[in-house]
Design a protein around this nucleic acid. Structure first.
Lengths: 206, 206
DNA sequence: GTCTATATTGCGATAGAC
DNA sequence: GTCTATCGCAATATAGAC
């Protein structure tokens, strides 16, 4: 029984395998700390395939980022477009953002890596998605103000950023918060509930 | 006029010069993306000095982290130890944290780099400082609850994390928020004021 | 489409002159 | 305490067999 068909050299799948392996490796170690040998090994192929499919390590990284950010924001965008009232929108948005992190376990690390140690992709891919997401949330809050549900002395962009901060920071600080926060199995839900209580109570008019 | 005395080879200063150069380089590019040649060039010395003083690149990085975190937290700790009431403490803490970022422009990037792409230093230096800081803030909030100033159904560690998130996220997201937030010269102060308004209003009892 | 083998460059660390 | 020179190794990328 030779390694003829099912072996590591499974035609046409190297590309997908490389994308998968690269997503977790780049997310966990950062672009510079990952070698193409390591990527190829984790994908069950060889380093030549990275040049063949992506034109090199940078090309693979760029495609990982674009793919992750696109999928994440495509799942998030529809939330703020439905018909419920503003406070419900904010609540639903936060819940969705929170649950999406389980579906996209790598996106936060990829995002924060680009924030702290930007590569060329920061300008070409990260910025556009984040700016679009921020604008959406900002508009929702502005709408809440004009409807009289949210304090009118608040600045929508600052308030949007404050909410994003409470949610995003939680998911990146997990490696240190494991020794600090209650180790409840429903920790994510508990935190989300508490954040929403503080935030909604803090911004609501009257 | 030879380069005899004042030249790049200024005795006994290589160590300090390396520490300074390494702080900004590691903060901006991350540990793996910086070479010892680059460090030496920026410090006006040679790569041999890194092994001589720090035992290698990792040793230099470890000393940079320890030095930055120690100085930062030493400046922050006294704030929560004075006698004012809880709400004032939280306000003062936030203001100090905010202003310290101007004094320590590298600390956030070093911190977030370790959060997203941890090195050995995450366990040995970062974790202890962050855990201590988090505990302090948590205790302050717990005190506010027992005094009746803060809602008693809130969890002190979650609430502390929420505040830290609003503040810390703001400073790391700056590269993308430049195109989003109002470009007021007093942006930091405006954001801080708004965050405090939302947070204090959101957590206060009754 | 995949693999092995290799060319070339740059890395971190060190030895030894001054 | 500092510098130059260099060693050994691992990096990315590519050429060419299958």
């Amino acid at each position: 029984m030779k390694s003829s068909v099912i072996a590591s050299s499974n035609p046409k799948y190297s590309r997908e395998k490389l994308m998968e392996a690269a997503t977790t490796l780049f997310a966990n170690k950062g672009f510079a700390a990952v070698s193409i040998r390591e990527l190829a090994l984790a994908a069950g192929t060889n380093s030549g395939m990275i040049s063949y499919y992506f034109g090199g390590k940078e090309g693979l990284y760029a495609e990982v980022l674009e793919s992750q950010f696109k999928a994440f924001f495509c799942a998030l965008v529809p939330i703020l477009k439905n018909e419920t009232d503003t406070m419900q929108k904010i609540k639903k948005f936060s819940q969705t953002l929170s649950s999406l992190h389980k579906e996209f376990p790598c996106i936060m690390r990829l995002y924060y890596s680009e924030l702290t140690n930007p590569t060329a992709c920061f300008e070409t891919v990260v910025k556009k998605y984040i700016a679009a997401g921020a604008k959406m949330l900002e508009n929702t809050i502005a709408q809440g103000i004009s409807e009289g549900n949210i304090k009118k002395n608040l600045n929508p962009s600052y308030s949007a950023l404050a909410l994003a901060g409470m949610l995003n920071y939680y998911f990146i600080v997990q490696p240190v918060s494991d020794g600090i926060l209650p180790d409840s199995p429903k920790r994510d839900e508990e935190y989300l509930e508490e954040v929403l209580q503080i935030y909604l109570n803090g911004v609501k008019a009257k």
